[in-house]
Design a protein around this nucleic acid. Structure first.
Lengths: 208, 208
DNA sequence: CGAGCTTATGGACACCGTCCATTTCAGAGG
DNA sequence: CCTCTGAAATGGACGGTGTCCATAAGCTCG
């Protein structure tokens, strides 16, 4: 019966893989994406510089594994936030957007990592699964309590996600906005964006 | 009178600085942002690995100079595209958005570089000036032919830019969209986005 | 107990950005 | 004309990185 048993955790170090991931998240938060390095996480974990190679075949694989954790966290938050609003579509959309805002502004480095195709493998099964959970949550919110005269749900999802992600990116990267603006006007901007999303949700079908 | 004269161009190499920038743009297009390296541009230009140090104090300075060129190109395109529509606000907004789409999908690496705060110095005078030109073009478009019952122009600008930049980022990074979708549906998505922008432009004032 | 596999180690290599001393050379001033 | 100066280019060095390699250590199971 132990034939298919999971590998025993207690090798030399015990649980180095997760230890490396934890240190990677710490470095990500404190020193940015550029601060996450194979030798760095090894150093923080107190092992040789080449030890991580046994758990991650490349730096890309390490960052991908970290991104999967971050994605799962985001998906969890979105799920629980929208679940409370399951029967109120408009509130659920707001909850979805607000969860994204909160997450991105609380941990900008984590949010950034998720979309860096150059650095992570978005086709990785774990990453793709968690990304699908986020997308599925948005679709699920849009699916319920739906007016009959709308365009298809995917189109609404693309539009809403464009606005949410675009505003977050603009704020995190400082695009086209004065620096003074970025701190003081966050609540106002959030309200505007949410009203915009309302507009998307209740607009007519565009002429094709 | 020659005391304040500009430095003669014909030093040893003649025009190494611009040569390095040209090679940098080539590497950016062909090998992505990660492919642009000080030693790389020096190699392509046929000079010593430390020669660029005389013209760019750091890699950040090199990438910033490249970004300034790219920004200027984008601003030029936007200016000429919107100038033709100077008396038709709705068409001008579409022209602005379409120019951004075209630019980003034609040269994704260049577009990406513009917003990488980690890599370039957005407070650099040249970069900031060109970024302001883009923002000014959007504001100028919104300023003319304006209905009286709107929110302030900056708010509209933020909303419109969020959608344009968000949609581009989503497409370039493959966010939440199936790969098959990304190629086939571009014209459709563009139409949808433009109709969304119309919605922003003609919406009512949100409750503050 | 010993075989075998996984894991950890330390060294090596090729890059990279940056700093440094040195050399080269165009142009200014005597 | 000739020297002098200072910017530009060179080559070497250092520390850091990702990746590969041979080796050693430790656990599991036959």
């Amino acid at each position: 019966m132990k034939a298919k048993r999971k590998r025993t955790v207690g090798q030399k170090h015990g649980d180095l893989r997760n230890e490396l991931l934890r240190e990677g998240l710490k470095l990500l938060d404190t020193h940015g994406i550029e601060g996450v390095t194979i030798r760095g996480v090894a150093r923080e974990a107190g092992v040789a510089h080449s030890a991580p190679a046994n758990h991650f075949r490349s730096k890309r694989a390490l960052l991908t594994a970290i991104a999967a954790i971050v994605f799962a966290d985001l998906a969890d938050r979105i799920d629980s936030a929208t679940a409370e609003m399951a029967h109120h579509t408009e509130q659920a959309i707001k909850a979805f957007a607000d969860t994204c805002f909160q997450f991105a502004f609380d941990a900008p480095n984590r949010y950034h990592l998720l979309w860096q195709r150059q650095l992570i493998d978005q086709d990785d099964p774990a990453v793709a699964a968690e990304m699908d959970r986020v997308y599925a949550a948005l679709l699920s919110v849009l699916r319920q309590d739906r007016a009959p005269h709308r365009v298809d749900i995917e189109t609404d999802a693309i539009a809403i996600w464009s606005m949410i992600h675009g505003y977050i990116s603009m704020r995190l990267d400082g695009n086209l906005v004065e620096a003074a603006d970025t701190v003081t006007n966050l609540p106002r901007h959030k309200a505007i964006l949410l009203s915009l999303i309302d507009g998307v949700y209740s607009r007519e079908v565009p002429t094709p």
